[in-house]
Design a protein around this nucleic acid. Structure first.
Lengths: 224, 224
DNA sequence: GCCCCGAATATTGTATACAATATTTTTAAT
DNA sequence: ATTAAAAATATTGTATACAATATTCGGGGC
């Protein structure tokens, strides 16, 4: 864990727990045992407890007094609610970014979009998602509103943690690139309202796709 | 601190620190000394450190590794950014609430509004603010989106902590009740878009009023 | 008086010990 | 065999001790 910038153990532990949730080593509803984690990470319980306090405010875990910490267990409804908020916030980002977009900034978006198109053409879903993420965060940055960025990034982290890799859905892939094409045109035209509506729709469509995966998951569990 | 439901010390300490920020015992930029706080609250440093971790994720304080915890120091820009996000989110609440509002729910809003009018007539600013708060949180509840509520409540807490009592500004008082009247009519007509726009404007006007207080504060400090 | 350096002190970060609470196991009664 | 109660054990919450880092203080040089 030694790097040029030495991070506090409690921060490292928080990152480690996040990663365990992300890769599925910890699943929804799992209990986090301080003693076991202390032994497996090779640190005392103190930084672990501090990390858990942080993660509980972030919403990734829930601490029940005297009983311990549990990985949060979002219901479908929570996912929908998160996306509902995200669609509004990212729609706002698209509008604000459009209102103040320079030619250089548009060129950067167009460049990112071209990468999306390339990955789409090659059916390279994984890299598409990566550039998609860069695209969205770049639009966020263009707003210049740090509070807005922090809130969106916080919600996005929660959503991603419960589905680290979005399974490949061919139909959603096709829709996504179409939505991005329309969005790029709204940016090109510097039409804020259109950009906002298209971005909102893009997010809500993404929500429906993700929710359908969860519904399939829950059906599969029922069969076990 | 003994109540029917015994809260953990770290939760109590976090509440205590929030209150100290709220009443001005801790001011922007102040350093929080663990040892001193430990002695004044009569608890060990452990729950204090855990409380500080929570408060740092909430954004109320900032922890600098190896140097300690400091009360966050929002600049005017931060306040503006918070209100910008709040206006979008509360505007969304107004729209969503309008889209699904029952007659009973409207009657409750009208009742709260009548109280606002009463306090306005009596120039009772303090109670006006209290009912104003109830009005806004009721609109939030009507959305049925818990995530949205949590985010708004978190931002609101941060805003309120840095100005626990909004100083009486006669002009803003007059504007506020006018904005509320218009908002009530939009709710009555069940016009979601109008409700959204009016709520957004209401919040941005509140932002301008609050910012002007801060600017006056900073000017006064300059004279000292 | 100012600056620099080293020592002393204070504070923060982590480990360990103890106390409080919950859970599991064992024992006793029916 | 089942159930309830008691005992043992495990885990969480807090206090205390120790280690690491930062800050302050004192002394010397210019």
């Amino acid at each position: 864990m030694a790097t040029i910038e030495r991070k506090l153990l409690n921060i490292e532990v928080a990152n480690e727990i996040r990663e365990m949730i992300r890769v599925g080593a910890l699943e929804k509803g799992d209990k986090i045992n301080e003693r076991e984690l202390s032994m497996s990470l090779g640190v005392s319980r103190t930084p672990i407890r501090e990390a858990l306090q942080r993660l509980s405010i972030e919403g990734l875990i829930k601490i029940i007094p005297h009983k311990g910490a549990y990985v949060s267990s979002p219901r479908l409804r929570d996912i929908r609610e998160m996306f509902e908020v995200m669609s509004v916030l990212e729609g706002t980002c698209a509008r604000m970014a459009t209102e103040k977009m320079s030619d250089e900034q548009f060129a950067k978006l167009e460049f990112l979009h071209d990468q999306l198109e390339e990955h789409y053409k090659n059916r390279d879903h994984e890299n598409y998602l990566q550039v998609n993420h860069q695209y969205h965060t770049y639009v966020q940055e263009l707003t210049g509103n740090k509070i807005l960025n922090d809130i969106i990034n916080g919600i996005r982290l929660k959503i991603l943690l419960y589905r680290s890799q979005q399974l490949y859905q061919p139909r959603r892939f096709d829709e996504s690139i179409r939505e991005h094409r329309a969005l790029l045109e709204a940016f090109r035209k510097r039409n804020p309202l259109e950009a906002e509506i298209l971005m909102k729709t893009h997010l809500m469509n993404q929500c429906e796709a993700l929710v359908s995966l969860y519904e399939n998951d829950e059906n599969e569990k029922g069969d076990d």
